[in-house]
Design a binder for these strands. Structure first.
Length: 431
RNA sequence: CGGGGUGUAGCGCAGUCCGGUUAGCGCGUCUGUUUUGGGAGCAGAAUGUCGGAGGUUCGAAUCCUUCCACCCCGACCA
């Protein structure tokens, strides 16, 4: 993509309305534009990241045999009357009427609708277990939206719903998703900390929040530091056994004798087992092997997709701007053409641009004229593309092309295009 | 919802206390020109319902009333 043809607007100064790094940077770098409190337009760069995050989630779910559907944003109040949540859900639920006076709502979550779909189609134990997920915009009319996309009112969420025939099987499903979540967050370059959360009336160790460490997080965590050393998601049972809670669940008596770390965290995922709560209230029964009908055991599992974009920035940035992990970067490579008297510079940059695209490297080409070199450097640092290829007078004089690694600041010179392409392909495929 | 704050050009701000000609500055934008390895120089130019509505006054960005929007702290957070 050539910047001259793109929708690329950065600003030198961060907007005064933003407080935390991710919010400031997203506005300054033109990733999002605020529409009203807690509601944002996703501009091209932000949207690319959002889609990459969503696709990693989609990919891992597919690997686990979790089926994707897409439920609507608008729901009928009738379903919520069935589950008795229409009254118990507070003002966070955005309610309105259609032209016929029918009570509607903008979905804050989809347990009811999912159970409704399930009961329409699934009639026998032979079809279970089933796990279904979707990625859709939600609306929760938060008392106080804040921190940009981290606590928006409208937000993109991935939510999965599982149906099992027994508690034991539901438990296995829960563990499978627990493990998958660790893998998903690690693929984005993050270190997730699963903490115990309120598990409702059912009890047991069956609700976890997945937190990302960041000073600007809204939760305070107490956790066994060992958790950070477990890098393989296959060791998830060890992770599950280690002590980790948010401050509201922190109990000094339980924590006695343990060496705990305390940090702020951002909740990016939440998994929950709730048994037959919705299948019973909404009469979603299947016929069992013995001929008797039974209520399937459910769990639901959510990841804040739009929140993750902010959370990743909180985890990876410096005073110059964002530093994207490769799997979620808006572009793999920034190609910076510096001003030069030599026509060769532009000709070579154009040529390299084609070569990069032919090698399936997603490149943003800063071909802007009348923009100073310093502005180009600063813009590319700001938007945090992992690798910058800089072509200027060094090329004109001795055919040297420089690569700057955004994360480390390391600079590497290349004297052949082949060596450069080889280096980039190998670096980009490490993840 | 309680507390605090802000609204003046696309962005960042001054001016408001103490009312007084055509409302300023920096960045950005446009034209020309010279530059170009870390947010360029020079010359010129455009851009405003001063958040909205009422009111006081000869006169309101400035004072009064009221409404709205946004931000921060808290409470809230299937």
């Amino acid at each position: 993509m050539k910047i001259s043809e793109y929708f690329f607007y950065t600003s030198k100064e961060a907007p005064a309305s933003a407080e935390i790094a991710s919010h400031k940077l997203m506005l300054q770098a033109g990733f999002v534009a605020q529409s009203s409190s807690g509601i944002y337009t996703w501009l091209p760069l932000g949207l690319k990241v959002l889609n990459k995050v969503a696709n990693i989630i989609r990919d891992e779910q597919a690997k686990q045999g979790i089926i994707e559907i897409l439920m609507p944003t608008i729901q009928s109040a009738n379903l919520w009357l069935e589950s008795n949540r229409y009254d118990s859900y507070g003002a966070e639920l955005l309610r309105f009427k259609d032209r016929r006076g029918q009570e509607m709502l903008y979905g804050p979550t989809n347990e009811e609708m999912m159970t409704d779909i399930f009961r329409k189609y699934v009639k026998t134990y032979k079809d279970l277990p089933k796990i279904i997920h979707h990625i859709q915009w939600k609306f929760r009319d938060e008392i106080r939206p804040r921190f940009g996309v981290m606590r928006g009112r409208e937000f993109l969420m991935e939510d999965a719903y599982s149906f099992d025939l027994s508690f034991e099987e539901a438990k296995r499903t829960y563990d499978k998703i627990f493990k998958m979540y660790i893998k998903i967050f690690k693929r984005m370059g993050l270190t997730p900390i699963p903490v115990q959360a309120d598990s409702g009336a059912i009890g047991g160790n069956m609700s976890h929040e997945f937190q990302i460490l960041a000073d600007t997080g809204e939760s305070t965590l107490y956790y066994d530091k060992e958790i950070l050393n477990i890098t393989d998601e296959n060791d998830f049972l060890k992770i599950k056994d280690l002590y980790a809670v948010t401050d509201e669940k922190y109990d000094p008596a339980q924590a006695k004798g343990k060496v705990l770390s305390s940090s702020r965290g951002i909740e990016v995922g939440h998994i929950f087992y709730f048994g037959t709560k919705y299948t019973e209230s909404m009469h979603a029964k299947v016929i069992g092997k013995d001929g008797n009908s039974l209520y399937p055991f459910m769990g639901s599992y959510g990841i804040g997709v739009s929140r993750l974009v902010g959370a990743i920035i909180e985890a990876f940035h410096d005073e110059k701007g964002m530093i994207w992990p490769i799997p979620v970067a808006p572009f793999d490579v920034a190609l910076i053409e510096l001003a030069s008297k030599s026509d060769e510079v532009q000709a070579f940059t154009e040529e390299l641009y084609s070569d990069l695209m032919n090698n399936n490297i997603d490149v943003i080409y800063d071909d802007r004229k009348n923009v100073s070199n310093g502005s180009k450097f600063n813009d590319m640092d700001l938007i945090g593309i992992p690798f910058q290829i800089i072509i200027g007078n060094k090329y004109a004089t001795d055919k040297t092309v420089e690569v700057k690694v955004r994360k480390t600041g390391e600079r590497i010179d290349f004297n052949s295009k082949e060596a450069l392409l080889k280096y980039l392909s190998s670096e980009l495929n490490k993840n």
